[in-house]
Simulated scan of single mutants.
Amino acid sequence: MLSQKLANGRNFQLFSGLLSIGLILILSFVLSLVYGATDISFEEVVRSLIAFDGSTEHLIVRGLRLPRSLIAVLVGAALAVAGALIQGLTGNPLASPGILGINAGAAFAVVASTFIFGNYQTETLIWVGFGGAAMSAIAVYGLSSLGRGGLNSLNLIIAGAAITAFLSSLTSGILVVSQQTLDDIRFWLAGSIAAKDLFLFKQVLPYLLVGLILAMAMGRQLTLLNLGEDTAKSLGQRTVLIKGLVGICITLLAGASVALAGPISFIGLIVPHLARFWVGIDYRWILPYSALLGAIILLNADCLSRVLLQPRELPVGLVMPLLGAPFFLYLTSSKVK
């Protein structure tokens, strides 16, 4: 009876924390609509959403800031959840979605296709990048299955590192020999959610929603898997199936995010650690906390990218290392100790 009361109290605390972070996310979203190269009052933002009159301020909010804020929420949540999944899958606290070659696959597909066929429209670029990310993840899973011991965490890490190194070298080679290709996709390579509209948001929304829903449903299985593969099997878990489903989630979430916004670093690395600081090792809570925290961090990083060098704007992919690098150094130093 006492243990049940303690568990209920703990769950209430975690749920309350989730609601509090949700309120911070709403506040961050509002601030992202208000602040930028041109500050717009909160009242004017509200009027632009409910009584659009075609003025410059209303066009900025409806045409520029609202789509990029929605994309920041979705991409931030997706990358953070993908990072939590890959850390849980591999048992490596320093892992991020790029370990499965997803970033390298998307970058190679975009660079190679631009080099061969010329500059694409943004909506076409998204599908090219998503296809490259998916093919890279499939190759990593295929190679890791061929290794000794089959589909296990060590083989995934080795195969991912090999694919990433191979594709990154090819990508660098193309960019070295073709200045035109570099000029065409430089902004995408830096990682940016600027100049994206609601049409692009709607294109990737189904994939990211499916990935997020499937990931949340995998929380219990991933927690058991982290107790050890033998333990998970003794509790009736089909570990190979779980790893395959987790891989699908990571591909959907990270692949679509990278295809849409480019390779934005550190979200998938640092956010799961922030979530674990609050909730412990239970992935039923780590995943939703990661989603909200990832959305908040990317929203605020994007807002910061607009005001740091006014009137110019930095790609958010260049701002994230300023926030994530110190945390990464702390993680690596603590692991060494």
Rank of each mutant, 00 (worst) to 15 (best):
E43I: 15
D302M: 10
L200C: 02
R148T: 04
A51W: 07
S96F: 05
I21G: 04
L66S: 08
V73T: 13
L329E: 04
R65T: 07
V111N: 10
I50V: 15
A190T: 13
F12Y: 07
A37K: 00
R284E: 02
L6M: 03
L209R: 08
N152I: 00
I102P: 01
A194M: 03
N8I: 09
S113L: 14
V110R: 13
A95C: 03
I174H: 12
G228M: 03
P97F: 09
G76Y: 13
A291R: 12
V177I: 15
S192N: 05
L331R: 04
G294Q: 10
N152M: 04
I60A: 07
L74Y: 09
P326C: 07
P315L: 10
S41T: 15
F187Q: 06
A295S: 14
I297R: 08
F29Y: 14
L154N: 06
V128S: 05
G118V: 10
F166S: 11
S169L: 06
V111P: 07
A109S: 14
L308G: 10
L59H: 09
F201Y: 15
Y120F: 15
L27M: 12
N103Q: 07
M320N: 03
L323G: 03
S145C: 01
G211V: 01
V81I: 09
P93W: 10
L6A: 04
A77D: 08
A78P: 06
V177W: 14
V46T: 13
G54K: 11
S192M: 02
F117Y: 15
L66F: 15
A232Y: 01
